[in-house]
Design a protein around this nucleic acid. Sequence first.
RNA 1: CGGGGCGUGGCGCAGCCUGGUAGCGCGACGGUUUUGGGUACCGUAGGUCGUGAGUUCGAAUCUCGCCGCCCCGACCA
Length: 444
Amino acid sequence: MYLTKYFLPILKENPSEAQIISHRLMLRSGMIKQSSAGIYSWLPLGLKVLKKIEQIVVEEQIAAGHIPILMPTIQPSELWKESGRLDDYGKEMLRVEDRHGRLMLYGPTNEELVTDIFRTHISSYKDLPKTLFHIQWKFRDEVRPRFGVMRGREFFMKDGYSFDMDKDSAIHAYNRHMITYLRTYERLGLKALPMKADTGPIGGDYSHEFLVLAETGESQVFYDKSVTDLSLGNRHIDYSDQQDVADIVKKFTQPYARTDETHDENLFNKIPIERRLSARGIEVGQIFYFGTKYSNSMGADIVMPNGDRTPVEMGSHGIGVSRLVGALIEANHDELGIIWPASVTPFDAVIINLKQGDEQVERACSQLYEDLILSGFDILYDDRHERVGVKFATMDLIGIPWQIIVGPRDLAEGFLELKFRADGIRRRIPLGEGSDHLVKALRA
RNA sequence: CGGGGCGUGGCGCAGCCUGGUAGCGCGACGGUUUUGGGUACCGUAGGUCGUGAGUUCGAAUCUCGCCGCCCCGACCA
């Protein structure tokens, strides 16, 4: 993408409404624009990141055998009357009336809808287990939205719903989700710790939430340092192996890790003092097992092998996709701007032309651009007629991991410069034939 | 929802106390500048000062209502 043809509305100054760093950087780098309190438009750069996160989330769900669907944002209130949540949910639920005077609502979550889908089409244990998920915009009319997309009213979220014939199988679904989530966060380059959670308004008695440690987090968390050393790495997961999956989950949930809601001072004090840690955390996901709460009230029964009818066992599992954009920035930035992890960066590299208008340099830049695009990279080419300082500052701000710097001085000697955003280190690289050197460096 | 603050061109702000129909910086746009770390010069466009009512000869400035936005708290993915 040639920058002069793109839409990247950079702000030089901090908008006064943004207090925390991720919110500021998202506004300044032209990722989002506020539409009203807690509601945002996603501009090109922000949308690319949002979609990349979404893609990773989807891939990990599919890898575990979970099935994508898409449910609507506007839901009929009748289903919520059935489950009993129409009154329970309170003012957080945005209610609207259609032209016929029928009460509708903008979904804050989808248990009712998915249960309705399930009960009309599935009625036998033979069709189980099944996990349906979707990634859709949700709306919760927060009293006080804040922190930009991290606590908006409208938010993009993956929510998955598991259906199983018995509790054993449902717990396996729960465990499976925990691993898919851990994998997802690892791919995003985030350290997210699973913590024993309160079940909140959705109800149930089995729940973990995932927290990214960051000073601006909204929750106080307490944990055993040993939990931060755990990671899945590249190990292969066989999701059908119930025992193996349970063992992995056990390893990750064994060490003490709780938010202030479930914190138990006595248990915490049993951890050796040098491993006893407390910090702030951003919640980026939560998983629940809640049994038959909805299947019971909504009549989602299945026929068991012995012919008995019984309410299906359910769980729900959510990852805040739009919130993750903010969380990622909270975890990856410096005083100059954002530093994107390679997995979600809006562009793989940017070509900075130090002397726009110079025929040689322009030719070299376009050639590099073509070569790198052909090699499969997503490249931004800063071809603006701007001072170099402006270009460097802009690219540091938007946080593209690699900056390919091309100027007449180095070019005359057959070199260009490659700068890594994260550490600022620049390397002089021979232009060579084509862009082999670059491709190698970018893939490293 | 309780407490506090703010609403003046795209962004950041001044002017308001001591009423006399708007100003600065950045940005945008058009030129010149060909630049190795937030750009130099010239020029142009853009605001009925959130909104409604009131006071007054006259309101961005004073009074009241309403709306919006931000911060702290309670709440929340």
